[in-house]
């Protein structure tokens, strides 16, 4: 009972009510016929269709595919991004002799590579993964470099006075101090991974939520389209929330006091 009231107090009743109100207004406008975009389904129709898709297992299959590829791609991208970022951020010559190249490459919008990737890798999961890894490695890379390069000089002096070895300095000072910046990069990378997964599925990969969305479009089933779009939105929210929760659990100690790390 107390936990129920606590939950109630924590939920944004006003916000949820507004959301429901908006959905209700949408429903009503469709019913009354005031809103006459030809293809706009009523929320109730979307919900009904979503129910069917859930029951048939179709939605779950597609969701799991997209989730799996997104996470796999993101993890690979994070490993690459952090690894390369540490090298470029900590080893001055590497930074000096290659950073400008990376900056220039970074300017190319990964989206514009999608058609090319399709040509090279075909309509496959490989295309999807490649795109995800390529796109979401960038923010991780950039934020890792930024994070380790902006570790405050005082910290370096601390390491010197405490006679820490290079390895210790890296593990005990540099990385924890760079962590907040890296975490931001990881978070950006995660939402990018989902975007690229959906894009790749929309244009070619024959499975996943994006593909289902395109199939629904081709089959002229607006309810189904909306059902998938809402699912993608929910997936986005869920991934984000999960990421934040995990960060909160694991990195509380690494979270610097405000202003401690730039």
């Amino acid at each position: 009972m107390t936990s129920a009231t606590a939950v109630l107090r924590r939920t944004n009743v006003l916000g949820v009510a507004t959301m429901l109100l908006l959905l209700g207004a949408w429903e009503l406008l469709i019913r009354v016929g005031l809103l006459d975009f030809q293809n706009l389904p009523a929320p109730s129709a979307v919900a009904a269709r979503a129910q069917q898709l859930l029951a048939s297992g179709e939605l779950m299959t597609n969701l799991l595919h997209t989730l799996r590829v997104t996470l796999l791609g993101w993890v690979l991208a994070s490993v690459i991004g952090i690894g390369l970022g540490l090298v470029l951020g900590l080893w001055r010559p590497a930074w000096r002799w290659s950073m400008a190249s990376f900056e220039l490459l970074r300017a190319v919008p990964p989206i514009s590579l999608v058609p090319l990737a399709l040509l090279v890798f075909g309509f496959s999961v490989r295309t999807e993964l490649t795109l995800i890894v390529y796109a979401s490695a960038w923010p991780v890379l950039v934020n890792t470099i930024e994070g380790v390069r902006t570790v405050r000089p005082e910290l370096r002096d601390v390491a010197r006075t405490l006679h820490l070895s290079r390895r210790e300095t890296l593990l005990k000072l540099t990385l924890p101090a760079a962590m907040p910046s890296i975490v931001v990069g990881l978070q950006l990378g995660l939402s990018l991974a989902l975007v690229l997964a959906v894009v790749a599925e929309l244009v070619g990969n024959p499975s996943g939520l994006g593909n289902a969305l395109i199939l629904a479009q081709l089959a002229l089933r607006p309810e189904e389209m909306f059902a998938y779009v809402f699912t993608i939105g929910l997936l986005g929210i869920a991934l984000n929330a999960a990421f934040r929760q995990i960060v909160a659990w694991t990195l509380t100690s690494a979270k610097p006091l405000p202003g401690k790390v730039s």
Binding site: G15, V16, T18, L22, S191, V198, G210, I232, G233, I237
Partner: peptide, 17 residues
């Protein structure tokens, strides 16, 4: 507060979708 969940949701929506 009123708009927060709606906006939050809209923001999480990948533009591709």
């Amino acid at each position: 507060r009123a708009l927060q969940p709606t906006l939050e949701y809209a923001r999480a929506m990948p533009p591709a979708a």
